[in-house]
Design a protein around this nucleic acid. Structure first.
Length: 596
RNA sequence: CGGGGCGUGGCGCAGCUUGGUAGCGCGGGUGCUUUGGGAGCACUAGGUCGCAGGUUCGAAUCCUGUCGCCCCGACCA
């Protein structure tokens, strides 16, 4: 390709719409153009990048025996109603664009394809002998994001690779799951990215095991915790750790003390010489379910620890067998609206009476009581006395006499010891989620009643997995991770072009002929080369080449008359003055091609 | 949706407080000079000042409404 025909329009100024560097560089380099909020055109340069990523993905998935397909984007509401997701995906905070056709029939614009693929497979596959199936597609997905941002990072229309696997049993699912994890590692490595694979919360999609692939970058939206030896990594939403030792409270005669206006852990400790780890902190939450019921929840955790709302929400959801739409701390305003007046915030104990809820207008009238593991082990502790300005001291669980759901709802923090090895500490970093793999289990096959005949001749539900890669997001994540002051530094494997040849001065025929010769030879040998043949000053060409991030640059310039050109590496910024044979030799080594 | 900010040639911005009919830099075009890190000079084209009402002799500027965009939060590949 010649730059004169490339439609290369670069911007000198940073467009005001972008504030992270990858977004700015993609706009400045003419890779993307915004049509409206969260909707971008992929310009020719970026399309080449996306195709290269796509090819790597297709190649690696083919190695694992995956089939490629293309599924409809317009999906009938019926299948979403059957899986129970239509309402939650289209109403309120829903992310699915939906519409009605002229017959009044409701359709959704696919944000994901579990329903479609499950229906198709269940209509097609009837016997365990035809399993497993692992099928994927690469195409545009639509999500009505509440707040699109950061260019391609969170857009409303984006390119995604989504794969779905179907199995006769859980073991087979697990083995495909780990094959896919391996494929993902190969894909992201080939794309030249620094990434980590971390344990993840499976969120709205549901299911058992789930892992995310994160490109590490300061601007990442996710907080991840990684052990120093690299053996453990998790999204903070999911992370577990060994709790630091607390300061034991001696066993003593239980009593009640006056704690006037000491509502916070800090005030309580300061005034009475306690340590936060000796206190059982109790927080009141309100959980709103799919069926619109609102459950008050009392959560107990050690005073020096924090609650992980995701873990909490999952636990409540599991307990009630309901999706939790929202969970938040109960405010004074909330209880007033319910007509409840006597919850002594700041002095609540785990044994706060359900009677307080008797006047509630719409809330359920019984607390769900959840206690983190951190407080259950305490033999003697301090907690609120459920009366304003009073706390219990030297109490224990036996004395409180309450039933608690015991589980891990504690937020893991950087510096915590790791569960796999207590000499390792968790470290914090930020990441951009570019891939996510799930073991869905039988969630969708059951709700959509997708079955096959098993070895015993009985109807059985498929075991399913699903595996996503954000293709367009990956491209931008690569920029976020690979750039400098001058512009993008594409990893060679996904660069829009591998080599750019610059004619320093187009009016100089020696330079021009030499550059043309090199260009011809490179493209003849299947090296993706770009020739900057514009009638521009050399400086402009250098700036543009740096900005759009082509990994190798050849300049036919001053030394052209001696048959010498410069070979420059964008990443290392090293430049060598070489004759043509040496250039071809070096590049053929770099690109692993024998032909040159 | 809640909180904050912004809409003025393709891009970045000034003008608005104190109304008088739009300006700067970059970019585009033409010519000459220049030619290894976003050149210089000259000429030139290009704007419903987001949109709709209102106030006024007169509105980019004041008022009301509305639409859009960006940032912080809930959502996620």
């Amino acid at each position: 390709m010649r730059v004169s025909r490339l439609m290369l329009i670069t911007l000198r100024d940073v467009p005001a719409e972008a504030d992270i560097v990858s977004h700015q560089l993609l706009l400045r380099g003419g890779f993307i153009k915004r049509l409206t909020g969260g909707i971008y055109a992929y310009m020719p340069l970026l399309w080449k990048v996306l195709k290269k990523i796509t090819l790597i993905v297709e190649e690696e998935l083919a190695k694992k025996g995956c089939l490629q397909t293309l599924l409809p984007q317009l999906q009938p509401s019926e299948i979403w109603e059957r899986s129970g997701r239509w309402k939650s995906y289209t109403e309120g905070e829903g992310i699915m664009f939906s519409l009605k056709d002229r017959q009044g029939k409701e359709l959704g614009l696919g944000p994901t394809h579990e329903e479609v693929i499950t229906q198709i497979i269940s209509q097609t596959i009837h016997s365990y002998k035809q399993l497993p199936i692992n099928i994927f597609q690469i195409q545009t997905k639509f999500r009505d994001e509440i707040r699109p941002r950061f260019g391609l990072m969170r857009s409303r229309e984006f390119i995604m690779k989504d794969a779905y696997s179907f199995h006769a049993n859980e073991n087979d699912l697990q083995s495909t799951y780990s094959e896919m994890r391996n494929a993902y590692q190969n894909i992201f490595t080939k794309c030249g990215l620094n990434f980590v694979c971390v344990e993840a919360d499976s969120g709205a999609i549901g299911g058992a095991a789930s892992q995310e692939f994160m490109v590490t970058a300061e601007s990442g939206e996710d907080l991840i915790l990684i052990s120093s030896d690299g053996k453990y990594g998790a999204n903070q939403e999911k992370a577990v750790s060994i709790i630091e030792e607390g300061k034991l409270l001696e066993l003593n005669k239980p009593s009640i003390i006056e704690t006037p206006n000491q509502k916070t852990i800090e005030e309580l400790c300061h005034n009475n010489n306690f340590h936060p780890s000796q206190i059982v902190k109790v927080l009141a939450y309100l959980a709103t379910c799919d069926d619109n019921k609102k459950h008050p929840v009392l959560v107990s955790i050690r005073g020096d620890q924090e609650i992980n709302d995701i873990k909490l929400s999952n636990k409540i959801s599991h307990q009630l067998k309901q999706n939790i739409l929202d969970i938040r701390i109960i405010s004074n305003e909330d209880i007033q609206k319910q007509g409840i007046t006597d919850i002594p915030f700041g002095f609540i104990g785990p044994d706060l009476s359900d009677n307080l809820l008797s006047k509630a207008k719409v809330w359920e009238k019984k607390f769900i009581r959840i206690a983190d593991k951190s407080v259950i082990e305490l033999k003697s502790f301090i907690c609120g006395n459920n009366v304003k300005d009073e706390h219990k001291v030297f109490y224990n669980w036996h004395l409180l006499n309450t039933q608690q759901l015991i589980c891990d709802i504690r937020k893991a923090k950087p510096g915590d010891k790791c569960i796999h090895d207590n000499t390792q500490e968790l470290q914090e970093c930020r990441g951009i989620e570019i891939g996510h793999i799930f073991q869905l289990g039988t969630k969708y096959s059951k709700s959509l009643n997708a079955t096959f005949t098993n070895e015993k001749g009985l109807e059985d539900h498929f075991w399913m997995g699903c595996y996503g890669i954000g293709i367009s997001r990956l491209a931008q994540a690569a920029v976020e991770q690979n750039h400098d002051d001058l512009g993008i530094i594409w990893p060679v494997s996904i660069a829009p072009f591998e080599v750019i040849i610059i004619i320093a001065n187009k009016k100089n025929n020696e330079q021009k002929f030499l550059a043309e010769e090199i260009y011809q030879k490179l493209i003849d040998n299947k090296i993706d080369a770009l020739l900057d043949d514009r009638d521009e000053r050399a400086g402009i060409k250098f700036k543009d080449a740096d900005l759009i991030g082509i990994p190798w640059r050849i300049v036919a310039g001053r030394e052209a008359s001696s048959g010498l050109v410069e070979l420059h590496n964008r990443k290392t910024k090293t430049t060598e003055l070489l004759d043509l044979n040496s250039v071809f030799k070096k590049l053929s080594e770099e690109f692993n091609t024998k032909k040159l």
